[in-house]
Computed example of a mutant assay.
Amino acid sequence: MLIRYATEKDIPSWQMLAKDVSDIFRAPLMSEDPEFISYINSKIIKDEALVAVDLISQNCMGFIGFSRKNNRISWFGVYKQHTGKGIGSKLLKAALDILDRTREITVETFRESYEPGAAARHIYKKFGFIDVDNTLYDKTGNSICKMALKPYKEETFSYVEETFHNNKNFYPMKMIREIHHYDLSLDTPSEISENRVKYEIRKAARAVLLNPNGEIFLLHVTKDKYYKLPGGGIEENEDLLDALRREVLEEVGCPIDIIAPIGSVIEYRKYFEQLQFSYAFLCIQNGPITHTQFTDQEIEDGFIGNWYSYDAAINLLGQFHGTSYIGKFITKRDFDILVESKEQINKILGEGEFNDSVGYN
């Protein structure tokens, strides 16, 4: 998912969303209301609106409008078909990161007694908003309330939160590299200026996984003609190492021993306005391979897994023949991770007995 500033091209999608949630807002004519359309245009002109976009379909999933001057959230909605996926939380967090957290932030929303508004109130309360005025009404006479988020002390606020993990032995992790467009001979589109990029943060766990024969597991993304290491996104409040075990079990089909940290890589994916953090670990297969659990998208992309020698794996990651934008980043990232892991792999192979290794289990 991508969070970016809304543009004029997004106006029809925003109006469609307003129609989709009009029953919740108790405003059946909202999408065609001239005042609402004027509001949308004003927010876009001022760069005071964010949109959540599906990276695969490029469809808009939700919008949030805000006011820098008044330091408040002024409109917030997610398509009903996309609720329950964390989209609202990410939109709100992105907006809060733009607003002044050293001052009180407010929003006028539904009262607690209004059941259809419970999901919205849940998100606000999750971020620390509290009710401060339950005597308000909107322009059509519906009862609403004002909620407020108390200010952070400036010195305690951080844009990038620490990754959640129980095992502290690997942290702080060595930074392997940062990957930028110029590392991949990519140019930034003229319409995306450097000072307008609003990066969505995504965090993931990656595995350099060895089997008892000393071979390394790679996934072949056949649709886009590139290879990658197993691993994937860390879910909200999920421990980093638990995420690693879960992802390997889903993509490879086996339990693992996590031997040691390798390092981290940051990717600045400007086309998607996404900041990707990857935390890589050296792992060893610890049990038979059963069945994989690929997502529908991974099946569509043609994921096929196999084991390779270190030299073969390096060769496959170093020869990207596709045109996929993400593929260019992934192969560069995983190539660097695998190069960084070579000394640790040689040490493990030299020991001969995998089960003698002491890991993070």
Score class of each variant (00 low, 15 high):
Glu108Met: 14
Glu108Ile: 15
Thr109Phe: 07
Phe110Pro: 01
Ser113Arg: 01
Ser113Asn: 04
Glu115Gly: 00
Pro116Cys: 00
Pro116Ala: 01
Ala120Leu: 12
Arg121Phe: 04
Arg121Tyr: 06
Tyr124Trp: 11
Tyr124Asn: 11
Lys126Phe: 14
Phe127Tyr: 13
Asp131Trp: 05
Asp131Ile: 02
Val132Trp: 15
Asn134Asp: 13
Thr135Glu: 14
Thr135Arg: 15
Leu136Gly: 06
Asp138Gly: 03
Asp138Cys: 04
Thr140Trp: 08
Gly141Leu: 01
Ser143Leu: 08
Ile144Tyr: 04
Cys145Phe: 01
Ala148Gly: 03
Leu149Gly: 06
Lys150Asp: 11
Lys150Tyr: 15
Lys153Thr: 07
Lys153Asn: 11
Glu155Leu: 03
Phe157Ser: 00
Tyr159Asn: 00
Val160Lys: 05
Thr163Lys: 12
Phe164Gly: 02
His165Val: 01
His165Gly: 00
His165Lys: 11
Asn166Ala: 06
Asn166Met: 07
Asn167Pro: 04
Asn167Leu: 09
Lys168Ala: 07
Lys168Trp: 11
Asn169Asp: 08
Tyr171Asn: 09
Pro172Asp: 11
Pro172Trp: 02
Met173Ala: 09
Lys174Pro: 05
Lys174Trp: 04
Ile176Thr: 00
Ile176Asn: 01
Arg177Ser: 10
Arg177Ile: 02
Glu178Met: 06
Ile179Leu: 06
Ile179Met: 04
His181Gln: 15
Tyr182Met: 11
Tyr182Cys: 11
Asp183Asn: 08
Asp183Tyr: 00
Leu184Ala: 04
Leu184Ser: 02
Ser185Thr: 07
Asp187Ala: 11
Thr188Ile: 13
Ser190Cys: 09
Ser190Glu: 13
Ser190Arg: 11
Ser193Ile: 06
Ser193Lys: 14
Glu194Lys: 13
Asn195Ala: 12
Val197Trp: 12
Tyr199Ala: 08
Glu200Tyr: 09
Ala204Lys: 01
Ala205Lys: 03
Leu209Thr: 03
Asn211Thr: 12
Glu215Asp: 13
Ile216Arg: 01
Ile216Gly: 00
Phe217Glu: 01
Phe217Ala: 08
Leu218Asp: 03
Leu218Val: 05
His220Ser: 12
His220Leu: 06
Val221Gln: 01
Val221Glu: 09
Thr222Glu: 15
Thr222Ala: 09
Asp224Phe: 07
Asp224Met: 10
Asp224Cys: 09
Lys225Arg: 09
Lys225Thr: 01
Lys225Tyr: 03
Tyr226Trp: 02
Tyr227Leu: 02
Tyr227Gln: 08
Leu229Glu: 02
Leu229His: 06
Pro230Phe: 14
Pro230Val: 08
